[in-house]
């Protein structure tokens, strides 16, 4: 059964890394639902969050192909773990005087902040799951959404460890005992 998998991909922060990842996904016809890239807690290492929709074995193949890229240090599928998966949205919504109170009330329900206001519009900043953002947008659509930007999902496992400790490629795939140990260099 196809489902959305959240992959956290730690990569060396080199020019062209994003290109390598996206190029590989494109050429092998893997479907990227969303992708975000930014700094991680470790200098020189960027963190990508990929949302990939596919069968489990297809997503496993995504992980294996990602590992073949030299810059890729670790791939973790957060789908089976307790994790926080959020995105951020900025919404510019038409807000004439007679609608403003109602919009503010909706924003309150969804914990969205007002970060800009004009006589005719409000810009709201919302964070949370895609479903929450979708629900907020559904509520706002009737007023007229003038502009919208969503970051795509970023995700992190719950619990105390700083970095995901278990990569995607495991012993059950026939990989040697020593392969893909947690990266010592990263945690030192």
């Amino acid at each position: 059964m196809k489902s959305a998998h959240t992959l956290v991909v730690l990569v060396e922060d080199h020019p062209g890394v994003l290109n390598r990842v996206v190029s590989m996904m494109r050429r092998r016809s893997f479907n990227i639902d969303s992708i975000t890239v930014g700094h991680s807690e470790q200098p020189g290492i960027s963190r990508m969050t990929l949302v990939v929709v596919g069968e489990d074995d297809e997503v496993e193949q995504v992980g294996k192909q990602l590992y073949k890229l030299m810059e890729v240090l670790k791939v973790t599928d957060l789908s089976d773990q307790a994790c926080i998966a959020h995105e951020l949205a900025l919404v510019k919504v038409a807000a004439k005087a007679q609608h403003r109170a109602e919009i503010l009330q909706i924003a309150g329900i969804y914990d969205a902040r007002v970060i800009d206001a004009t006589p005719a519009s409000l810009v709201l900043e919302a964070t949370g799951s895609e479903q929450k953002i979708d629900a907020l947008l559904a509520m706002l659509r009737g007023f007229g959404i003038r502009e919208l930007v969503r970051t795509g999902r970023i995700a992190m496992a719950r619990g105390g460890t700083a970095a995901p400790t278990k990569g995607m490629t495991t012993v059950s795939n026939g990989v040697g005992d020593g392969a893909r140990e947690p990266l010592v260099a990263l945690t030192n």
Partner: peptide, 15 residues
């Protein structure tokens, strides 16, 4: 040496 390149040459004995 590259941190992101660790080919698995020794097989897992269980396999």
């Amino acid at each position: 040496r590259r941190a992101g390149y660790q080919p698995s040459t020794s097989p897992n004995m269980r396999q």
